[in-house]
């Protein structure tokens, strides 16, 4: 088996707050193969976005810091890089797109100028060449009349178009890895379908790997080959997508899948729920962090945290003492 493109080991990201230190990402390990799309799912505050930011050296420091762990991308260790080394990695080897394209684009510059800046940061090309490359990229992501659109400001574009511009910008230097943080969450469902389809197509065309951060299990099911489920800063389950949906091993994954409102043939009287709420990150329990909401909880679950361990024949792992 070839070495994975990205290998993350025992990643810990901490934030200091007035009330104490919060571990937003707590001992997270995973790998992404070349050309693979991995879904990173979980609810707000589970640490999925911070994990993504850490891969680009974008954790705001202070208050945050990468406390320990290693991030190897394409043979290069990224943890501990200084600012100028990070700048040569970002955009060229790893790029990120964000949920809200309006805040990620600079409102006072034309989109063309923003794209040209990115291209010229990483490649020794003339402005004219960069402009031509930007137009070509905009056409690739499905923007009609790209030579006109390039003159426009972000506010003149619709949400779907802005997200396409972000994608075009992120892909313009052919990164090996794209981290996409809720790229379609702010879009309407018909636009979401268009953008997702486009992203998967481009990912194949560029042979790039992708980490898709989302709360939407439907998006994961349709776009990813492998998925990781995070809860309260930790990965609780990791499996090939077909396996994860067919046989969720962690009670949290099972509960999450059951509680998604989905279109049904028959109406059901009540939606299944996961009772309770996530634990306070400043006041975490000793044992399994899902214990208080788990319907399978045993006494020993509360004693120590379960480790992420292989389970079954497929390439699956689960952090649970009583997996399904």
């Amino acid at each position: 088996m070839p070495a994975p493109l990205l290998e993350v080991n025992n990643l810990v990201v901490e934030f200091s707050t007035d009330a104490g230190v919060v571990r937003a990402v707590d001992d997270v390990s995973f790998s992404v193969a070349a050309g693979e799309t991995v879904g990173l799912v979980g609810e707000s505050g589970c640490g999925k976005t911070v994990t993504g930011l850490a891969l680009l050296g974008l954790v705001p420091t202070p208050p945050g810091r990468l406390a320990s762990g290693s991030i190897r991308l394409d043979g290069q260790e990224l943890a501990g890089l200084d600012d100028s080394s990070w700048r040569s990695v970002r955009g060229r080897k790893v790029a990120m797109i964000f949920q809200e394209p309006m805040t990620a684009l600079n409102p006072v510059f034309r989109i063309g100028n923003q794209m040209i800046d990115v291209l010229r940061q990483h490649q020794r090309i003339t402005r004219r060449q960069a402009r031509a490359a930007a137009i070509e990229m905009l056409a690739k992501v499905g923007i009609p009349a790209p030579d006109k659109r390039i003159q426009e400001y972000p506010h003149q574009l619709s949400g779907g178009m802005r997200q396409r511009v972000m994608i075009a910008m992120a892909l313009s230097c052919s990164p090996r890895l794209l981290v996409a943080d809720e790229p379609t969450t702010a879009l309407d469902v018909t636009t979401q379908a268009q953008v997702l389809e486009q992203m998967v197509r481009l990912q194949q065309e560029f042979g790039m790997s992708m980490i898709l951060i989302t709360h939407d299990m439907g998006v994961v099911a349709q776009s990813c080959s492998k998925a990781m489920v995070m809860y309260s800063g930790r990965v609780v389950e990791q499996a090939p997508v077909t396996e994860l949906f067919a046989r969720p091993r962690h009670p949290y994954t099972g509960g999450l899948l059951a509680s998604i409102p989905r279109i049904r043939e028959q109406r059901i009287p009540e939606l299944p729920v996961i009772e309770g709420t996530v634990p306070d990150p400043l006041n975490l329990p000793e044992g399994c962090r899902f214990a208080d909401r788990c319907n399978k909880v045993r006494d020993y679950c509360r004693l120590a945290q379960p480790e992420l361990k292989p389970i079954g024949r497929a390439d699956s792992k689960v952090a649970c003492y009583v997996p399904d």
Partner: peptide
């Protein structure tokens, strides 16, 4: 038809 269905076999 545009709703992402939470089922990878779909």
């Amino acid at each position: 038809s545009a709703i992402p269905v939470p089922d990878p076999r779909n």
